[in-house]
Write a protein that binds this DNA or RNA. Structure first.
Lengths: 86, 86, 86, 86
DNA sequence: CTGCCATTTTACCGGC
DNA sequence: GCCGGTAAAATGGCAG
């Protein structure tokens, strides 16, 4: 890419403007997501837990199992039990 | 949030699904952005510089204002009560 | 706080310098922590799991239970099971 | 990491405990910093402005260099192959 | 595959 | 004491 102010420059500008437009859209959607969380929070839901849930749902089952397995393994290695009701 | 399987559960599900849909859209746009970068790269543009250009353009306003704000605070801290209008 | 360049200014400077010194120390320790993680990683440990473990250990038992309870509740509200071995 | 309760477990425990000790130190210093801010506030200083001052001082070098780097990239992007030394 | 960078998440602080 | 916004940490994704 050598030309500036010429054809290549125009192309560069077009790429950049397309990207900027897309990023605006992306930011708008991120804003929508924040709004939904805010609304849920306003109705008494715990957004932190909601985020955990969404992450779990999005996770491949195998990944989730692998992670649980490792965490359990490490707990054992440390001799921790973390009984739910103790 | 107390009901399970009842009204609250429905609301929760709706929030989660709305968010997941929005996140899909967002991921789609992120993918579009990547494609534009890839195309630009294929035409000989340096994507790293493009990213910096975009970042710079995005900062020009918001960040410059932040800088001015900081400088203003700084001046106030150095010149408190020296200005007539305080 | 009205004087600048006088007694109050000196005090301000001293406070700021004390804080900056403390923040340097803090940054140094943060760096040490990163090093330990890096070493552990080099010996085959999964640092993400380690972080989870450390967080669990540092958590109040009551908080941990509350969080687990809520996550379980929300899962039920969505009708998710997440059986460990299915 | 395969051994549990064996050598690997001991290593894990040692890493975790080292990190926890370091994090305690870090938390202690953070607490010191809070105290200094509190004392300054008690003597009539505005902690928000103090924080901005500290941030500004910290940015002066690193961030200014970043700005210069960005501007340099920018100029290169606008003037590629116009400079003799490229 | 490793390091880097952007995004996301968490923790903190000040105001109401 | 909560809530909002703001800074730090951590996770994930991408380029090289």
């Amino acid at each position: 890419m050598v030309e500036v102010g010429g054809v290549a420059g125009d192309h560069l500008r077009q790429y950049i403007e397309r990207i900027e437009r897309l990023e605006e859209e992306k930011a708008g959607i991120a804003s929508d997501i924040r709004e939904v969380f805010a609304e849920a929070k306003g109705n008494g839901f715990d957004t932190k837990i909601m985020r955990q849930l969404i992450k779990l749902r999005g996770m491949e089952e195998s990944d989730r199992q692998e992670q649980e397995y490792l965490l359990d393994l490490y707990k054992r290695a440390l001799g921790i039990d973390f009984e739910p009701d103790e």
